[in-house]
Amino acid sequence: MAKSFKEILSSGEFVITSEIGPPKGTNVEKMVHHIELLKDKVHGLNVTDNQSSVMRLSSLAACHIIKDNGGEPILQMTCRDRNRMALQSDLISAYVLGIHNVLCLSGDHIYLGDHKGAKQVFDLDSVQLIAAVKGLEQGKDLGGNALDGAVEFCVGATATPEADRMDAQLLKFRKKVKVGAEFFQTQAVYDMEKLKAFMEYAMQFEVKILAGILVLISPGMAKYLNANVAGVTVPQELIDEMTGVEKGKALQKGIEIAARQIKQIKEEKICPGVHIMAIGKEEIVPEILAMAGL
């Protein structure tokens, strides 16, 4: 039997995870194609949870499909759409469906998505959600009630190595470690020096940090990230590199940049692994990996 994600994390192997975006609707054809393409090339496949506050097929259902197709799913769970009852219920449900990895996040604000008038929840925050998972592992729910059958997860969280106000972010990071996060998948990083600085701090803790690699697909995307996405900064030289190619070649350049970064992270041992995000273009991930020599 293939190793579980938890075993991979402690094996010393360079860890590779990627991401699957569930469809908005019932047509899972493209998603299944991406799963088939990636499942044997990465150690874990995250499924986003109503990413960017856009309503989609649930992370739980998509993780189940990954499992059915022989992949190792990582269930992303945000605190935005469900209260503590629903979150715990979904965690138990995920476990019985064979989903044994979970990534706990706060979640984007509802106002950033496609249901701006919806009521957001945030009954728990990401730290409390991690603690809730650990509680379920001990056979107890947040109400203090005993479970008939506990869960056992590999629990992850997120971090933002390029945040501009690092002190407050590190407080949150420490708390996530303290409550039991075993691995981190970071927000997209483009500046390797900032990633190294973050890792210097993070190394004191017994957690595995997978560097977030967000593939640039156009110069416009780079500018959009800089203007609109908190904690992500694409340096000018990368924007110039993306702009400098002839028309129609930007995606290829983005693939090259991603592969280069992964290679550097691995060779210089900056992080023990990477998390590759190719939002909507998951089919390019095998090429990135090949180019990075993985």
């Binding site: 605190c79 935005r80 706060s106 979640g107 984007d108 604000h109 950033l112 957001q120 945030f122 925050d125 990401s126 730290v127 409390q128 997120t158 971090a159 933002t160 945040a163 501009d164 106000r165 407050a168 972010q169 407080l171 949150k172 708390k175 927000q187 908190a230 904690g231």
Partner: peptide, 17 residues
């Protein structure tokens, strides 16, 4: 987001996402 344990990743330049 009514968070109780610290800022989310959407905090930038001291402002909210």
């Amino acid at each position: 987001k009514e968070l109780l344990n610290g800022p989310c990743g959407g905090s930038q330049n001291g402002k909210c996402e």
